[in-house]
Simulated assay, not measured.
Amino acid sequence: MNTVSDAHRRASSAGLIGLQSTIAAATLGWLLLAPPAQGQMLLVPLTGTAIQSLPARALHGETRLIGTGPTPGSLIVEGRRDTLTGLFRHATLVLAVPPGGCRAGASA
């Protein structure tokens, strides 16, 4: 009986460690990719329609185009996060510019 409960306990511990590792990795990823309240952000459209409509939806008010991003249709902009987060409804991710910037695109 002890052998079965010991094996069950080890399997349960391994599952908890795996879950904690997954949560830690997801949290770290979000912290690295979370857009700043104000500054440069990477806009990544997820559909063809989003690619076509992104410039019109993103570039309004005080949002300024910096250049193109590393993926097709993506843009690097400078502005405020609260004016850009609504883009998620239009299949576009708003992310932090990776450390070192996005050098794949041309400057605007």
Rank of each mutant, 00 (worst) to 15 (best):
F88Q: 09
L93A: 13
T71L: 15
V44R: 10
R89M: 11
G69A: 08
L65F: 11
T22D: 12
I66G: 02
C102Y: 08
R57I: 09
L46S: 00
A14Q: 11
D6P: 01
A108W: 10
A24I: 05
A108L: 10
L43P: 02
L65W: 04
G61R: 12
T3P: 01
S5W: 06
S13C: 04
L33W: 15
A26F: 07
T47C: 03
A26G: 04
P45E: 07
A24Y: 08
A14M: 04
L84Q: 14
V4A: 15
I51H: 00
A104F: 04
P98L: 12
P98Q: 08
T92G: 00
G100S: 06
G61A: 08
L42F: 01
V77E: 00
A91M: 09
R64L: 08
G18E: 13
G61P: 08
L28I: 12
G100Y: 03
L93R: 13
W30C: 03
S13F: 06
A58K: 13
I76N: 02
R64N: 03
L87W: 10
G69F: 07
R80G: 01
G39L: 03
R80T: 12
P45V: 14
G86V: 15
H90F: 09
Q52Y: 13
V77R: 01
L54R: 09
S13P: 00
M41W: 02
T85G: 00
R81C: 10
L59G: 07
M41E: 02
T63F: 00
S12Q: 12
G100H: 01
A7S: 04
M41Q: 06
A56G: 07
P35H: 04
P70D: 09
T85C: 00
P55L: 12
I23F: 14
R80M: 02
A50M: 05
Q40K: 07
C102L: 07
R80W: 03
A56Y: 04
P45Y: 07
A58V: 14
L19Q: 11
G100F: 04
Q20V: 13
H8Y: 04
S12G: 05
R57L: 13
A104E: 06
T22V: 03
A106H: 05
G86S: 14
T85Y: 00
G79E: 07
R103N: 13
A96K: 11
G105W: 02
H60S: 05
A26C: 11
G29D: 13
C102P: 01
Q38N: 05
P72R: 14
G101T: 04
A34Y: 03
T83A: 05
V44A: 07
L32W: 10
A106Y: 00
H60T: 12
L65Q: 05
A50E: 06
S74P: 11
D82I: 14
A37R: 12
M1G: 11
L31M: 03
D82L: 12
F88T: 13
L43T: 15
L54W: 06
I51C: 00
I17D: 01
E78W: 08
I51Y: 00
A56F: 04
